[in-house]
């Protein structure tokens, strides 16, 4: 399985506080014992691309071990493993990491050239490039209420003097 990862491509959607932050398109170039050398393309939500080659830990893609069963992701049963700084969700069929949490970032596998298991495929999620809600109307109302409240409060205090 480990040797199969070379030349495979993974697409991750990275969300932070339930909002899409960016996409990561990762192509694995080489493998060693615990690390992979990968070509990473960072796709920002405004369409900007950043391409770089970097060494990443192998457990972000493949984990061969045991963990706690944690339901299903995209129809594939997964187990969760806590590693220093990471919480990873591993496909129980082939050890592929389907999602991991690192700090504020939530990395979810959005597509892969590696099959998840017999008859289980990663569905292509529809990207949402405008996920940030617009709080301007509600904050405008809040500001108006605050300003008018303070205005009447100060007016009453001045008239009582």
């Amino acid at each position: 399985m480990i040797m199969d990862l070379v030349n495979q491509t993974f697409l991750y959607a990275v969300t932070s506080s339930n909002h899409l932050a960016f996409f990561l398109l990762i192509k694995i170039l080489a493998l060693s014992n615990n690390t992979v050398v990968a070509n990473v393309t960072d796709i920002q939500t405004n369409g900007a691309l950043l391409n770089y080659t970097v060494s990443l830990p192998l457990f972000l893609f493949y984990y061969n071990g045991s963990g706690i069963p944690a339901g299903q992701i995209d129809g594939a049963p997964v187990y969760s493993v806590n590693l220093p700084g990471y919480e990873i969700y591993v496909d129980s069929y082939n050890g592929l990491v389907l999602a991991y949490v690192n700090g504020d970032g939530n990395f979810t596998l959005n597509g892969s050239t590696v099959p998840l298991g017999p008859g289980v495929y990663v569905p292509l999620h529809v990207p949402n490039f405008n996920p940030e809600p617009d709080y301007t109307p509600s904050v405008t109302v809040l500001t108006a209420v605050l300003v008018s409240s303070f205005y009447f409060l100060f007016k009453r205090r001045r008239s009582s003097r």
């Binding site: 506080s17 909002h19 504020d104 940030e132 809600p133 709080y135 301007t136 904050v139 809040l142 500001t143 605050l146 300003v147 008018s148 409240s149 303070f150 205005y151 409060l153 100060f154």
Partner: peptide, 29 residues
């Protein structure tokens, strides 16, 4: 003075929402 008092309340709310990870709301505030 009412605008300045309101801005202090909004600034406090902005800090509170930032700590809870609501960065978009915090920025608007």
């Amino acid at each position: 003075r009412s605008f300045i008092a309101s801005s202090l309340i909004l600034l406090l709310l902005s800090a509170v929402f930032y700590t809870f990870g609501e960065t978009a709301l915090s920025n608007t505030l």
